[in-house]
């Protein structure tokens, strides 16, 4: 590539860079500044230093929301990857109607999480939902029961719905990874006497590291910033027991605590950034 052509190519990135500066960097800088004020969303903002950040760590509701968000993210990201990988391994085999089954698994991912939450709410609503009654008829009253009353159960329902919806998306990425593995490698391993388990752990899994990295990072980001599914299934309740940090930020922002909510948003940014950097680092070393 000659220098002139290289300059021109770099010049073509200017529109994208401008949009990035306007819609990401500028709001981020504004947000950092706003997080040090007591702005209520309307009046004049006064500088309050680190007061908002100090208040965050002594805010019981925020601490509960962090706990909920982290438990949700760990459970979701783990299950999404395990289920997605299992689906991908199944779908990598040849069987009748394979294309249709792939579509069915992927289909929930194209529906809005908000709508998906409402659908599951009507299926699982205690006393009224179809699945609730079906489980009762099957003699499994404790399987779901009045899940809203129990924090672990309501969180488990939220995770299950999230995994059910997005496992198809994870599957697609793993499937692409599996199909990019050369058949020669697998055949050679078989000739050398490797069994299916050995082939999976010693050939497929190491070669899937780029797919694992993409899935882990996107699932962590998505799960830590979860909003829609919780809003439609439990609205963060009862009380604020299943509220996520994203919902808390929205409620604080609308509750005349715009400065404080921005500080919480900055904390969420850090909370997301740390595991993403760690997982990137770990998977890079595996490369």
């Amino acid at each position: 590539m000659d220098v002139k052509h290289k300059d021109f190519v770099q010049f073509l990135s200017v529109p994208a860079l401008c949009l990035y500066l306007v819609f990401f960097v500028y709001p981020l800088i504004q947000g950092v500044g706003m997080s040090f004020t007591d702005w209520d969303g309307m009046g004049r903002a006064a500088f309050v230093g680190f007061d908002n950040y100090a208040a965050f760590f002594s805010d019981d509701r925020a601490m509960n929301d962090i706990r909920t968000t982290i438990i949700f993210a760990i459970a979701s990201a783990t299950l999404l990857n395990l289920v997605g990988l299992a689906y991908a391994l199944l779908m990598d085999r040849r069987f009748p109607l394979r294309g249709l089954v792939r579509v069915i698994i992927y289909l929930p991912a194209i529906i809005s999480p908000l709508i998906m939450g409402y659908i599951w709410y009507f299926l699982l609503q205690p006393q009224r939902g179809f699945l609730y009654h079906a489980l009762m008829q099957l003699g499994l009253p404790d399987f779901v029961g009045n899940w809203v009353l129990s924090y672990p159960k309501s969180l488990a329902v939220l995770v299950a719905v999230n995994v059910w919806q997005f496992a198809g998306m994870t599957m697609i990425i793993y499937l692409a990874g599996l199909q990019s593995i050369s058949c020669d490698l697998i055949d050679a391993a078989r000739i050398d006497g490797a069994g299916s388990t050995q082939i999976f752990f010693h050939i497929k899994l190491p070669l899937l590291v780029p797919a694992i990295r993409i899935n882990v990072v996107t699932n962590i980001i998505g799960s830590l910033s979860v909003f829609d599914i919780i809003m439609s299934l439990t609205q963060g309740g009862p009380g604020y027991s299943t509220e996520s940090l994203s919902i808390y930020i929205m409620r604080m922002c609308y509750g005349n605590k715009t400065g404080y909510s921005t500080a919480v948003a900055m904390m969420l940014f850090l909370i997301i950034l740390i595991p993403v950097l760690v997982s990137l680092r770990l998977t890079q070393s595996k490369d």
Binding site: L149, P238, G239, S241, K257
Partner: peptide, 20 residues
């Protein structure tokens, strides 16, 4: 108070009915 809406109060009643 602007920082304590009717919705917030209702959520406290939810907690009450949830046995908290």
């Amino acid at each position: 108070p602007a920082g304590f809406t009717g919705d917030d109060a209702g959520r406290m009643v939810q907690d009450l009915l949830a046995g908290r």
